[in-house]
Design a protein around this nucleic acid. Structure first.
Length: 227
DNA sequence: AACCAGGACGTGA
DNA sequence: TCACGTCATGGT
């Protein structure tokens, strides 16, 4: 059976550097991937370069809950026009404006409140890095969103467990799939080197791979199942 | 025309 | 803890 580390290198070899987390307010040098925005930055791990990009990641992490990224891009472009990528302005912004801006992502009533919640949470935080536990107290941030924020916005070592992760590794027989979030996260964190690039790339690679082969059942995985 | 998408919350067992 | 309904738009 392939190990978690084996699978990382297989996916990296197959798909290459993914350049996550994507931005809409960033002039990219690489060709467009999924959406119409050149927001990916493969082999460049210097992001976020400022607080605006950090808050864009946090905003995107909330908006993308149970939604496609192409919809999130639309919403992020709308928010960018409103200069909403900063906690102060997001906190002060009219709720109806936010609601309109993020409409394409769905759940816009909930997510409007969630964005307000994170913004208000971040205001007194200032330059300090929040803890995962603090993020989880914010209504609208669950375990996966918290880890996305920690890993991509604050460059802290937290492995992200999403539905694709469960799908791929249960199909590979490495997990059952219904284990708790924490248990799966521990498995990955014990199996991988404590390296930011590995964590960031692995999550993005799993997403990319799942989009190819784990959308509809029965799953057929020619990459990981070839021998 | 169901079904899913880069989940989380509230409720009741 | 855990299973379930709810939130909502857009693409297949």
């Amino acid at each position: 059976m392939k190990s978690i580390e084996d699978i990382y290198f297989l996916l990296l070899k197959r798909y290459g550097s993914q350049g996550w987390w994507p931005f809409v307010n960033h002039k990219a040098t690489n060709p467009t991937k999924h959406g119409k925005v050149d927001g990916y930055h493969p082999r460049d791990y210097s992001f976020p370069v400022n607080g605006f990009q950090r808050f864009e990641i946090i905003t995107g992490a909330i908006l993308t809950q149970n939604t496609t990224w192409t919809s999130v891009e639309e919403a992020l472009l709308n928010l960018h026009k409103l200069c909403a990528f900063c906690p102060r302005l997001m906190s002060d912004m009219n709720e109806e404006k936010i609601r309109q801006a993020i409409k394409p992502v769905g759940y816009y009533n909930k997510k409007t409140q969630y964005l307000k919640n994170v913004a208000e949470f971040l205001l007194p935080i200032k330059n300090r890095v929040p803890t995962r536990a603090e993020l989880l107290k914010v209504k609208g941030i669950g375990p996966e969103t918290a880890d996305c924020i920690m890993l991509y916005a604050f460059k802290e070592l937290h492995f992200i467990v999403d539905s694709y992760t469960r799908r791929i590794f249960s199909h590979q027989g490495i997990i059952k799939g219904n284990e708790s979030y924490k248990k799966i996260q521990e498995l990955f964190e014990l199996s991988l080197p404590k390296n930011l690039i590995v964590y960031q790339e692995y999550h993005a690679l799993l997403n990319e791979h799942a989009k190819h082969y784990y959308r509809k059942k029965p799953y057929e995985d020619p990459i990981l199942n070839s021998h």
